[in-house]
Design a protein around this nucleic acid. Structure first.
Lengths: 150, 150
DNA sequence: GTTCGATAGTTCGCAGCACGAATTTCCGGG
DNA sequence: CCCGGAAATTCGTGCTGCGAACTATCGAAC
């Protein structure tokens, strides 16, 4: 059980890293883009989501901003705070990266039947939920089992 | 499905990192120790296992050697090659770290019944096997001590 | 309206990580 | 003997993650 979890994590990481590389970003930057896809976010919130210290996050956002994928905006409610949002280019890249990563990861359980996949997804989903994992990666449209909409 | 895999990987990584930190090593060094637990290994082999470039591995082994956890030995068969082995201290730390990580990770599916765990382990094990993930983390031996959760 | 503790982010220095290109040394076959 | 290839290392670069110290603001209490 433990070994299966660790190894599958290793596997997913490798695939995730490969997808990132193909899109010219680091895995961390890819993760940042994915977290921002639903909408802008404050630094503090991002730190909680990604489990990063504040200073780590400043650097990550700096670099991603330098790449033109993300933008800092002042928060109208709070002068101290900052909202981090995707730029148009970042948004485009995020969508492409996300789709590519999904495609690759979706291939991993290729040896399982549809039913087995359902079961695996259900169990893993419960583990994830029980452990309150933040939504670091969005659910691709639920409902359609294999069909792809935008 | 995809989201569940990515998030569970994120979760396992976080737990793995936390365990490493508590033992005064980095996750990468922890992984190196775990790979070496069954026995010594050449650099090339390690690179394949950990999916690292040769130069990355040299650095990782350097740092871990500096910490006194690992040792380079000349390969008797091939003057060019090197065997990397755990030092006694590294062996001890590896065992401790491994056990702690197992305990933590074993807690993650606490919300599942014994049967569900079996099913999850089986399915995940197949995915791992189908994708030829190297044994970056050993199967805890069924004989091993009584950390059977609850 | 000043004071003061908390909050949001940044800066800085540090060690580690991962890579590619170039290099050294050695193995093996022709 | 010679050369192609394999095993490692070195070097330079950029990214990662952290803690401690800092700035600036918020909000509440006085």
């Amino acid at each position: 059980m433990v070994a299966a979890l660790v190894r599958s994590a290793f596997l997913v990481n490798a695939v995730y890293a490969e997808s990132s590389r193909e899109h010219g970003i680091t895995p961390q930057q890819g993760q940042l883009l994915c977290v921002l896809m639903p909408g802008p976010c404050g630094m503090g919130e991002l730190g909680t989501m990604l489990r990063l210290a504040k200073s780590s996050l400043t650097g990550l956002v700096d670099r991603t901003e330098r790449n033109g994928l993300v933008r800092r905006t002042p928060d109208p409610q709070d002068t101290r705070a900052v909202r981090v949002a995707l730029t148009p280019r970042g948004s485009r890249l995020a969508a492409e990266f996300y789709e590519a990563a999904c495609a690759r990861i979706d291939e991993l359980p290729a040896g399982l039947s549809a039913t087995e996949r359902e079961v695996l997804a259900g169990l893993l989903g419960r583990v994830v939920r029980d452990n309150k994992v933040p939504p670091v990666f969005a659910e691709p449209d639920e409902g359609a089992a294999g069909g792809r909409g935008h």
